[in-house]
Nucleic acid binder design. Structure first.
Length: 476
RNA sequence: GGUCCCAUCGUCUAGUGGCCUAGGAUACCAGGUUCUCACCCUGGAGACACGGGUUCGACUCCCGUUGGGACCA
């Protein structure tokens, strides 16, 4: 039988990195097995679920390159809010077989019973008042539907990540499946959905581990074959606390907006919990080939972005130019302050910037000197390098530049050499002032390459501006 | 409060009783390269939470403690 996995987020916000990793594991597992990977929205919390969030999740998945398959028998991605009838029907079935029963206990009665149980040091679960009352379909007062949990026994399953797991049923009470307002409870919906969608493997976060016994009970009561489960360890924040869904900076979108490549983010989150011996860098295709649940660890991992930064730079260095440009384009435009055409010179610059950029944001800011016309100089660098004693050499260099027969790295080097020799300077002593003049700061790619790319006209103008600046500050 | 889970360098991890006085990666530090920054190269420092067992032998198995976490209320 072919493997079918799913990712079933609640569309209540952006896709955060923990959710993305769960999706990734499900996706990689399915693709590795040649099975399918499905999506479903668990939007029973109508108050917080939004279509915008659904869009955000879809967009994040597609950015990461996690493609999903159509769900057989469904027009669109299933939404729990559109399946309420199906859940009620399942509950009716349960009532018909006696696996569930109606309960008319009021909130007050429940509270009192719970308090009494606590005082008697007993489990605070439902005390079973209505269990054998055989309450019919029209009780004449509000009712909920509860599962008739067996008195004793064990629910066991062999978790594909956590190993043999299970719980004593006496821990479980007759939990509610249909609330008195007529809405089904989460566990019921999940079980019915997973069954209807033909899910064979449920790979989800550890936080769902303790609710698995209940769900197993439901599978049994409904006469469904339970899937295999793998409860993978959670991702936690740097301090070790649970990843908060509110934390915007942990969202996939935020990583994108800060200039990370999807290839890097994917690689990073896969490696958070999954490993294949010492392999650190891998493509999506390699991940699919290598991914197994056995490779997923058992302890939670903290999200530290150090390694992501390194990975991102690795991908910036090695991605093919068209891919790189498509990722970087919006950042370059933002820096340029308007629409941008990528000319060959800019492409050359980007090539040089690859090994100097940890993010696309950084890359764009390093390319700023090329992208803008009005360049502002860093005061500190200007003070340090644009000194009065450098004015003369700079002026000579500028004049030599002006009459160069061709604007190439070789001829630029020749001009530098002549000035250096005349003034007994080291290359660095002359290169730094020039660098500050043309890029605005003390760091850039090699000076000859930088000048060549900037072009003669702009280079001369910037050196002139720098000379003017030296002149005016000398008179102060 | 109850149930369950987890525990190797700062971080991600390799490791399934002897091959480990613990390997890789990142981050950090030092040096090299260099016109600057970065890349790159070399080196350094850095961990089996603790206590009991089991065993000829434990980081690896068991129990407990501590710490962290999740879930149910």
């Amino acid at each position: 039988m072919s493997v079918v996995t799913r990712y079933a987020p609640s569309p209540t916000g952006a896709l955060h990195i923990g959710g993305a990793r769960t999706a990734l594991f499900n996706w990689a597992f399915a693709r590795h097995q040649g099975g399918s990977f499905l999506l479903r929205f668990e939007d029973t919390d109508q108050a917080r679920s939004t279509r915008e969030s659904e869009e955000a999740v879809l967009e994040a998945l597609s950015w990461l390159g996690l493609d999903y398959d159509p769900v057989p028998g469904f027009e669109d991605i299933p939404r729990q809010s559109e399946r309420l009838e199906r859940y009620r029907e399942a509950i009716e079935g349960l009532l018909a077989t006696g696996a569930a029963y109606r309960c008319t206990c009021t909130v007050e009665e429940l509270e009192a019973a719970r308090r009494a149980a606590r005082e008697a040091r007993r489990q605070p679960g439902y005390n079973g008042t209505c269990r054998n009352k055989e309450i019919g379909p029209e009780p004449g007062r509000p009712f909920c539907v509860r599962l008739r949990t067996p008195e004793d026994g064990l629910t066991r399953w062999n978790d594909l990540n956590a190993g043999p797991s299970g719980e004593d049923i006496s821990q479980l009470d007759d939990f509610i499946m249909l609330r008195s307002d007529g809405t089904p409870v989460y566990h019921l919906a999940v079980v019915v959905d997973d069954h209807d969608m033909g899910i064979t493997h449920v790979i989800r976060g550890r936080e769902h581990m303790t609710s698995t016994p209940r769900q197993l009970l439901l599978y049994r009561a409904l006469g469904f074959e339970p899937p295999q489960f793998a409860h993978v360890p959670l991702l936690v924040e740097a301090g070790g606390k649970k990843l908060s869904k509110r934390h915007e900076s942990m969202s996939v979108q935020s990583y994108r907006d800060r200039g990370f490549a999807p290839e890097a983010v994917l690689n990073f989150i896969a490696r958070l919990g999954w490993s294949h011996s010492d392999l650190e860098i891998f493509t999506k295709e390699e991940l699919v080939k290598l991914f197994t649940l056995a490779g997923v660890g058992r302890s939670p991992s903290q999200v530290h972005n150090d390694k992501l930064l390194w990975l991102n730079q690795h991908y910036i260095k090695s991605l093919p130019m068209p891919t790189l440009l498509s990722h970087a384009h919006r950042f370059l435009e933002a820096e340029a302050g308007g629409p941008l055409r990528v000319e060959p010179q800019l492409e050359r610059l980007i090539d040089l910037l690859r090994e100097r950029s940890k993010t696309f944001m950084e890359m764009a800011s390093l390319a700023r000197f090329y992208l803008v016309d009005a360049l502002e100089l860093e005061p500190k660098a200007a003070r340090k390098y644009l000194t009065a004693r450098m004015a003369q050499p700079l002026r000579e260099l500028r004049d030599a530049f002006a009459v160069l027969p061709e604007w190439t790295q070789e001829s630029l080097r020749g001009a530098f050499d002549a000035v250096i020799e005349r003034h007994q300077l080291k290359l660095g002593q002359l290169a730094q002032p020039v660098r500050v003049a043309v890029v605005g700061g003390p760091a850039s790619p090699g000076i000859f390459e930088t000048l060549e790319i900037l072009g003669r006209e702009r280079s001369l103008a910037r050196i002139d501006a720098a000379l003017t600046r030296i002149g005016s500050s000398a008179q102060d």
